[in-house]
C-alpha cells in the first residue's frame, strides 16, 4: 500500500503545461528522488502538493485520502512538511523561534490564555521546546539557538530549514534541492542525515535534487521529469543507464 500517490496531475500556466499528466506513487519509508533539467516542473510539483498551485487536472492522495482540495495551511497538519529551493526562513527571528514555529500545528491555546500567559500556555511552550531540542540535537544546531537567521552562513540556514520541517513531526518530508549551495563536506553530512531521517525517524522522503552522485547514493527510487512529462522512473541503476534521461541531460 503506497503512502502517497499522485494521479494524472496536469498544471497549466496560460498555455504552457508545466506538468502534463504526471502520476507516481511513493511507498512508506522510501527515499524518492525527482530529477530533471531546469524547468522540468519539479518545483511546480512540490507547489501543487503543498497546495500553492491549483492543478487543472488530477488528484493527490496521502494515506488514501484525497488532499487535492485541502486548504494549504492544513497540509502540514496531515503530516506533510517541506523545505524550499530558495530558503523561506523567518529572517528576523532566532533559530529557536523558527523551530518553535514548526510546532505551530500542535497549538492548543487560544488568544485569551496567551494574553494572560496562563499556566497551560507556559506548559505548552515547554512541550514545544522539548521536541525542538530533540531536533536541535539531531541536526547539531546547539550553537545557533539564539542567533538570528540573518547572521547565519548559508549551509546552516539550509539545516535550520530542514530542522524546522522536522519539528512538525511529519510522516512525509518534501525536500527541494537540499544540497544546492552546500560544500562537499556539508553534502556528505546531509547524505547521512537524510538516511538517518529515513531509518531512525521513519519518515518518508520525496526529494528534488541535481547532484547525481548524491542522488544515486541516497535514493531508493528515482523519477525523471522533462518538459512536465515523466521521462523514466525506477531504481537508481536503471535511471543511470536510461537513454532518454541521458539525452535530456546531455543533449546527446
Amino acid at each position: 500500500m503506497s503512502l502517497f500517490e499522485v494521479k494524472n496531475i496536469t498544471v497549466a500556466f496560460g498555455g504552457v503545461k508545466a506538468l502534463n499528466d504526471v502520476s507516481f506513487d511513493v511507498d512508506k519509508g522510501e527515499i524518492f528522488t525527482i530529477i530533471g533539467p531546469n524547468g522540468a516542473g519539479k518545483s511546480t510539483l512540490f507547489n501543487v502538493i503543498s497546495r500553492i498551485y491549483e492543478p487543472s487536472k488530477g488528484e493527490i492522495y496521502f494515506e488514501n485520502k484525497n488532499i487535492s482540495k485541502t486548504k494549504p495551511h492544513n497540509i502540514s497538519k496531515l503530516g506533510i512538511a517541506r523545505t524550499f529551493q530558495n530558503l523561506e526562513l523567518f529572517e528576523n527571528a532566532t533559530v529557536l523561534q523558527n523551530l518553535l514555529l514548526g510546532r505551530h500545528i500542535y497549538k492548543k491555546t487560544n488568544i485569551l490564555s496567551e494574553v494572560f500567559f496562563t499556566p497551560s500556555a507556559r506548559k505548552q511552550e515547554h512541550e514545544y521546546r522539548l521536541k525542538v531540542e530533540e531536533v536541535i540535537d539531531f541536526l547539531d544546531l546547539q550553537h545557533y539557538r539564539d542567533t538570528l537567521i540573518n547572521g547565519l552562513p548559508y549551509g546552516v540556514r539550509k539545516n535550520v530549514e530542514l530542522a524546522r520541517a522536522l519539528c512538525t513531526d511529519p510522516k512525509l518530508l518534501l525536500l527541494d534541492e537540499p544540497s544546492s549551495g552546500l560544500t562537499n563536506e556539508e553534502t556528505i553530512d546531509l547524505g547521512f542525515w537524510i538516511k538517518d531521517i529515513q531509518s531512525l525517524l521513519g519518515i518518508t522522503i520525496i526529494m528534488i535534487e541535481h547532484d547525481m552522485s548524491f542522488v544515486n547514493k541516497v535514493s531508493d527510487r528515482i523519477l525523471a521529469l522533462n518538459y512536465g512529462k515523466i521521462l523514466a522512473s525506477g531504481l537508481p541503476e536503471e535511471i543511470k543507464n536510461n537513454v532518454d534521461v541521458k539525452q535530456a541531460y546531455m543533449g546527446e
Binding site: 494549504p72 495551511h73 526562513l89 523567518f90 529572517e91 528576523n92 514555529l101 505551530h104 500545528i105
Partner: peptide
C-alpha cells in the same frame, strides 16, 4: 512574525 518574514513558509507550517 512568520507572516511578516515569509507568508509562504508560514502557510506551509500550518
Amino acid at each position: 512574525v512568520a507572516i511578516r518574514d515569509s507568508e509562504i513558509a508560514a502557510q506551509s507550517l500550518g
